[in-house]
């Protein structure tokens, strides 16, 4: 069984920009008894998620909806255990697969076969898990002999296909997906759709952050609308999406 329980989560992301990251300022602020601290605002941070509680169970398919910077990606990273929250606690049951950036981990100078391994490692698989799946991934990618070539020689569509084939080969109980996964050319899309559907059906739990209404409605049953890191609305996905769209349009009208 898979489940996600978030209990009153707050995430402050420290901004270690100019002035705050340097050792000199920390030493000076320590030596001057914190006067600089006040002026610099030593602990500058952005509150990305603000007091969020959430309970997801086996079978739930949740879409995270909201503007850029609403905290969708941060929340996914909290669920993956990558960002430990500043306040609150997280409990996730089941094997987690975070799929954030489809092509992450791939190396342009290595050939397709090596990249299957590299991308698989970035997805958190062990070599023992990837190696048996290599042949199947190669077939899905339909790249044939191109797999022997370094992927810098691929067209954008070809590398997207390979990345897609690898990323959708993971089997997990809890699937965390950021942004759209539906890349590739028309001929590939049908196959892609079947494959993503299978991936999602097999996972016990899905959390998707996306700006694509189509993807959200196709894949998810519930929606969580985030605004400035706070939950604005949670409920059936169509309803939440509708309210979100209305508010976006109203905001556009108001500013016009």
């Amino acid at each position: 069984m898979s489940s996600i329980t978030l209990d009153n989560i707050t995430v402050d992301i420290p901004i270690l920009g100019a002035g705050t990251r340097s050792l000199k300022n920390s030493l000076i602020s320590a030596a001057t008894g914190g006067t600089l601290k006040v002026r610099d605002g030593y602990k500058l941070s952005v509150r990305a998620v603000d007091g969020l509680s959430l309970e997801l169970n086996h079978g739930d398919r949740l879409a995270l909806i909201g503007h850029n910077g609403a905290g969708k990606s941060t929340l996914l990273r909290v669920m993956a255990g990558i960002y430990p929250p500043t306040e609150g606690s997280v409990r996730v049951e089941g094997r987690i697969a975070p799929i954030f950036d489809l092509g992450f981990g791939m190396d342009p100078d290595s050939n397709g076969w090596d990249n299957i391994l590299l991308r698989g490692i970035a997805l958190g698989l062990s070599l023992d898990e990837i190696r048996p799946a290599v042949q199947e991934i190669a077939e899905v990618s339909e790249l044939g002999e191109f797999l022997d070539m370094p992927i810098r020689t691929y067209s954008a569509g070809m590398s997207a296909r390979l990345a897609f084939a690898i990323s959708t080969s993971v089997r997990a109980d809890v699937l965390l997906i950021d942004e759209g996964i539906g890349a590739g050319d028309a001929a590939f899309l049908n196959k892609a759709k079947q494959r993503t559907n299978k991936l999602i059906e097999e996972a016990g739990l899905l959390v998707l952050a996306s700006h694509s209404d189509q993807l959200i409605v196709d894949w998810c049953t519930q929606g969580l609308w985030l605004e400035h890191g706070k939950p604005r609305m949670i409920g059936p996905v169509e309803e939440v999406l509708w309210h979100y769209r209305v508010s976006v349009e109203e905001a556009a009208k108001a500013s016009a």
Binding site: R91, V92, E93, R95
Partner: peptide
């Protein structure tokens, strides 16, 4: 599939 994997993170 190891569904017994449990991730627990607490802030304090």
């Amino acid at each position: 599939m190891s569904s017994s994997t449990i991730l627990e993170v607490h802030s304090h």
